[in-house]
Nucleic acid binder design. Structure first.
Lengths: 145, 145
DNA sequence: CCAATTTCTATAAAAACACTAGGAATTCCT
DNA sequence: AGGAATTCCTAGTGTTTTTATAGAAATTGG
């Protein structure tokens, strides 16, 4: 299991935005530079995040993006499902006349989906930032020991 | 999250093999027909399962495939990781000098991987078959109610 | 009016996935 | 011995998904 580049970039961008605080608008180009993400690709991703209600934007000179609400109120589940484009409705393959193998596949798929949703739905952006800070500072300590 | 066709087909085939018991060799072509899977594709998948130690084969007339061990001893984790080809080693991107965003991505990736492994490593083929049988029989009941 | 920015549409390039072709090797059966 | 059935193996092909890129319209601030 690996997140797509799209999701990875989106996550990295929103983490930056969350760290910089909700005051200022940050430009797509700057985010791209800071995180070393292809600029045009990031543009499209930020747009999707805006449409998803995670970001608000301001067009024109001095414009950019910022969070619509505090990190605590942004669920990783909502965020990542939006980024992965996994609105891929549960296959509506009629649940009748399935072979045993097909039933098994369904079962496994459901279990996996549930497990992932569990992880993501129980973590918000604030908690993720806390983890990151802790990880980063423990990385710092390494140098002093 | 969705399993690849390769994994889906492999799972369906091994479920069939497990149901038919460990006695007889079953031919690839028959499995393909029963589960409606492209024959040549399935061949390659079964071969991989043999190399992974899940199946043993007999070449030539009257040949085919069968499980190497009882379903109880086949972990879904081992099986599916083999099928997904997800030996995709944990990225060895040096864990130094990561941006906060990159750390966040790592964290999420690890959590998700762990959650999926948890599900899969705690289920064996026998348990999966039980689930399937229960699901199938409750599906049957539907017709009588 | 001009520069900076988001927004939008269209397309291209690359990678992953889902197969297919064809023949070699092995085994069984008569 | 010979032919039919089967796995084994290598290589290739087509399609879909992912990862971008190009370029111009719309909006805003100065």
């Amino acid at each position: 299991m690996r997140l797509s580049k799209r999701t990875e970039y989106g996550l990295r961008a929103i983490v930056q935005l969350a760290r910089l605080g909700p005051r200022e608008f940050v430009q797509s180009r700057d985010l791209a530079k800071q995180e070393n993400i292809p600029a045009k690709f990031l543009e499209a991703i930020l747009l999707a995040l805006r449409r998803g209600g995670f970001l608000e934007s301001k067009v024109g000179s001095g414009g950019g993006y910022r969070l619509t609400r505090p990190p605590r109120d942004i669920s990783l589940g909502d965020l990542i499902r939006r980024l992965e484009g996994r609105l891929t409705v549960r296959q509506s393959t009629s649940t009748t006349n399935l072979s045993p193998g097909e039933i098994a596949v369904h079962l496994v798929n459901d279990k996996l989906t549930e497990a992932m949703d569990d992880v993501l739905d129980n973590m918000n952006l604030e908690q993720l930032l806390d983890h990151v800070n802790r990880a980063a500072s423990s990385q710092q300590e390494m140098y002093y020991i």
